[in-house]
């Protein structure tokens, strides 16, 4: 059985889920106007961009787990 190594792999993939937390909760990263995008200040388009990025990360973690016994 390789379930324990699988488990380890799974949890290291899950560490990816921390990235959206750090990226969006650490305000000094993005509390500025420049560079603007089609007239939208950085603060706003940066946060908007993180919606699809976070979805992508969650999807990656989901598909890494997507085996018949993944719901553990």
């Amino acid at each position: 059985m390789t379930s324990s190594t699988n488990g380890k792999k799974r949890s290291s993939w899950r560490l990816l889920l921390l990235v959206p937390f750090i990226a969006t909760l650490w305000v000094p990263f993005y509390n500025r106007v420049e560079p603007t995008f089609i007239g939208i200040p950085f603060f706003y388009w940066y946060l908007l961009l993180w919606a699809p990025l976070s979805a992508l990360i969650t999807w990656i973690v989901f598909s890494r787990n997507d085996s018949p016994d993944n719901d553990r």
Partner: peptide, 23 residues
């Protein structure tokens, strides 16, 4: 103004959180 945008990080991080715990 900008403070109202807190709803964005809120609705970004809530999913990884739910993903991990609620199953």
């Amino acid at each position: 103004g900008a403070i109202g945008f807190f709803a964005l990080p809120y609705t970004i991080i809530v999913y990884p959180l739910v993903f991990l715990v609620l199953p």
